[in-house]
Amino acid sequence: MRRSLETALAAALFAVVGIGGVVYGARSWMPPLASRHGAGIDAMLLYLLVTVGGLFLTGYLALAYLIWRGGRRDRIGTRLASHKTEVVLSVVLGLGMAVIAEGGVLGIGMPVWTEYFDAAPPADATVIEVTAQQFMWNVRYPGADGRFGRTAPQLVDETTNPLGLDRSDPAATDDIVTINEIAVPFGRAVRIRLHAKDVIHSFFLPHFRVKQDAVPGMTPEMVFFPTSTGSFELACAELCGLAHYRMRGFFNVVSETQFRAWLSTQAATR
């Protein structure tokens, strides 16, 4: 009596966890989507949430059932499963898991991944250079000539020239530099070259499903396509020091005319 009550209680615990977990998880949790490739990432996550949610519920209910049942037995049932049962169960479940896990990667994940990384940047993409440092995002546009001027770490002066821009280089004269603020025109792809000056940071645009570490000595590039206008937050996702938690930038997707106006005010304030 006491024994079956206790086991029923434990079974209830696991059943509640299983059902509660699925109910809690079934909400929509992601920040609203704002990029084209992000739809693929969300599809991948949705696939995982649904399949894993099913496995999770099944697993917990099975555990709860076995505990409940075991608490009501006074002698054991089948003592030893046959070798064949053991092998069959392993093969079936192992294969099932392989299909769910690898199938997801091969069927949904890889195409999204390959398209994202292989995408040749369209000629009309907005080209931006972002240089992360403790604790801000230096943003640079190439200006009218479409070319970034030379930079050198020897020229860096944190107050007057944080990027170490070589002002004697003609290509540098029209470069536009801002801090913590990126603007891009809606309807065109964005191409970002990422640098880091001091330690590792990570360029994370949660709404765009974009995350890329900024590693000193490397210059990874990202290409993506915004699908809505608005002002979005840019967060740092790699521990970089004391103010990591407020290394915040803005990523504004605006109309073509607003973009041009913004660029010229930025150029003028220099």
């Binding site: 086991t7 555990l63 505990i67 075991g70 037995r73 499963a81 169960l89 392993s90 690898e102």
Partner: peptide, 26 residues
């Protein structure tokens, strides 16, 4: 990485299946 889920699943299920037919003492 995802191939690891195969032996891990089998192991987990074996633990679960060990409860099959049990006379459970909690």
């Amino acid at each position: 990485t995802l191939t690891i889920t195969v032996p891990m699943t089998i192991f987990g299920v074996n633990m679960l299946a060990s409860l099959w037919g049990a006379k459970l003492e909690l």
